[in-house]
Design a protein around this nucleic acid. Sequence first.
DNA 1: TATTGTTATACTCTATAACTATA
DNA 2: TATAGTTATAGAGTATAACAATA
Lengths: 163, 163
Amino acid sequence: MRPAGPDRAACAPRSSEAPLALGALDEIVGFHIARAAVSTLDAFERHLGTPFELRKVEFSLLMLLHANAAVSPKPLARTLRVTAPKLSLLLDGLQARGLLQRRPNPQDGRSQHLQLTLTGRRLAERAADAARTMEAELRAPLSAAEHAMLIELLAKLGAPGPG
Amino acid sequence: MRPAGPDRAACAPRSSEAPLALGALDEIVGFHIARAAVSTLDAFERHLGTPFELRKVEFSLLMLLHANAAVSPKPLARTLRVTAPKLSLLLDGLQARGLLQRRPNPQDGRSQHLQLTLTGRRLAERAADAARTMEAELRAPLSAAEHAMLIELLAKLGAPGPG
DNA sequence: TATTGTTATACTCTATAACTATA
DNA sequence: TATAGTTATAGAGTATAACAATA
């Protein structure tokens, strides 16, 4: 093992413009994930956040509701990795905007069937379109194969199992 | 293009255990990055956060300080993607723990030379060791080649340029 | 006048705990 | 008693604006 210290590092003073040596961070996926998250969040804001007034989780929630008919909150919370109280508030928000209906589950009075309204479905489709545009932009520095590979590898890492 | 809706989706009711259809989300790197971030953050907490009482940024900061002699706050803030006020507070914290020295830059009275103390360097090295253990765990579902590829692709995406 | 770093303030996000209703 | 969902409260994290000192 090489020491944790300088690597491609500079021990001489560097200009304020030159990138810093990452040291041990360079080998740590979590660091690169956190950095990439900033880039993607920026793109999200421009393509989806600002134009549709959606935050990241809200967009994800909308997509999940659109792809899964009559889901209940519990599996949504698990998939989105948010707590149950947080999801309640998110659903309140979507409902207040007329995007969502909450209906009692006839088989189990404790749970609900969630369903997008027509307005909700329309918004979901427009947002999905915008997401494709965003994705094309993010994909720019990557080849198609690299893009597909990246998603596959991230999915392996992010699957609910190992986390 | 196929519609944004169901895909590998189920239109039938699903058990509370089965994973949901991701729909359009499946094609969005940002979503997979956000999910993977949860897994890696969990590992970080166990290996570094709790044992060393370090938060993610603090750990990154420590690694950068260890790899770059006499840096000033400005490039650190840029590399870590935090605001200048935030970095000030982070440096305050490390200094209060005796990990860091702030010395005036002799060439420019406005800026500083930051340097880890002996205690700081020791902590940085122990933390880097723990990070390697953490990394081995995260790497588990991936082959060595996949792991290297993942880091390379994330670095392309997360480079300060496009973000 | 522009830049480095700090202080002060406000806001967003998220988690934990306590409560209700159904099974 | 266990589970689904909600309400209420508190804490962590981050950003913006205003400020001081130097170039």
